[in-house]
Design a protein around this nucleic acid. Structure first.
Ligand code: MN
Ligand code: MN
Ligand code: ZN
Ligand code: ZN
Lengths: 122, 122
DNA sequence: ACCTCAAATAGTAATAGTTCTTATTATTAT
DNA sequence: ATAATAATAAGAACTATTACTATTTGAGGT
C-alpha cells in the first residue's frame, strides 16, 4: 500500500479520539486539514485501514463507527448522552458455555451494554 | 389502531418463524398472500407492531431483522450459514459489575455471539 | 532532476435499505 | 348507507455506502 497524505490524516483522526466517530464525522474533521478531500476517499481509506488492522469498525444501529482500539472489547452505550465507551467484560464462561450447550464455536462476542452513565446520576 | 388485513398478515409472518426475517423477506412472503401489498406497507406495519410490543427488531450488521421473541434474549450468529438463533446468557453478574465499576445503570445488553454452528462440524 | 507507471484521488453516479408523500381505498362509528 | 379518517399502493426521496472514471500523485529507476 502506497503512502497517501489523505490516508495518514484519516488514520490520525480516528486514532486520536476514543469517541468512535462515524465516516461523516471523520470526513468533517479531515476537511479542516484537506479541504478538497472527498467522502469516497474517507470511506475507501477507512476500509483499507480496517483490513490492515489499524482500526476496526462497529455498528451503532445501522451506521458504522470507527474504533482505534483493535483489541477485543465491548461497549457501554449511554442512552442519555449517546457516548460509546470501551469496556472489557469477562466472557470466557460464555465461550465455553456455548461450546458445551450448543457445540457452537465462538469467534467473537459483540456486546453493547445499553443504559445510563454516571454523568446523569444526581 | 384500526384493523388491517395487511398488518395481520405481516404479524403472522413474523410470528410464525424463528428465522428473524428482514423487511425484504417479510415483503416477499406477504406478496404470496397479498400480491398487491407494497414494501412501504411492510415497513410501516413492522414499525407499528414493534411500537405496539408485538415484535422487536434487531440489527444484523446494518440491516434490521424482525424477531417474534419480545423477551430479553441474545443471539448466536453463524458465520457459515448466516443463521441467527435465540440464546439466553446469564448476565446478572455483568449488570452488577457495570454498576459497581462504572456506576452505569444497565437497561439492556445487546449481545451477538458470532462463530460457527454445529451443522458445520464434521 | 526527469520518466514511467501503478496506485490513489476528486467528483460523481449508482446502489441498498428505509422513510416520506399523496391520491385512492377500506374500516368503523353514526 | 354515509361520513370521517386511518391505512394503502405506488413511487419519490433520503441516507449510508460503494462503484466508476478521468486525473493526479508517490515512488522506483534513470
Ligand atoms: Mn471501542
Ligand atoms: Mn431472537
Ligand atoms: Zn451519559
Ligand atoms: Zn451454521
Amino acid at each position: 500500500m502506497r503512502f497517501s497524505y489523505q490516508r495518514e490524516t484519516i488514520r490520525d483522526i480516528v486514532c486520536s479520539t476514543n469517541a468512535h466517530p462515524n465516516a461523516g464525522q471523520v470526513f468533517n474533521l479531515a476537511k479542516k486539514l484537506i479541504p478538497k478531500i472527498s467522502l469516497g476517499t474517507v470511506y475507501r481509506n477507512l476500509k483499507q485501514l480496517e483490513e490492515n488492522g489499524d482500526l476496526r469498525s462497529i455498528y451503532d444501529g445501522n451506521i458504522a463507527r470507527y474504533d482505534r482500539n483493535t483489541e477485543p472489547h465491548n461497549h457501554l452505550k449511554c442512552k442519555k448522552c449517546g457516548a460509546l465507551v470501551d469496556v472489557n467484560v469477562h466472557d470466557n464462561d460464555i465461550r465455553s458455555d456455548m461450546k458445551k450447550k450448543f457445540q457452537f464455536t465462538v469467534d467473537d462476542i459483540e456486546m453493547t451494554i445499553i443504559g445510563t452513565c454516571q454523568k446523569h446520576t444526581k
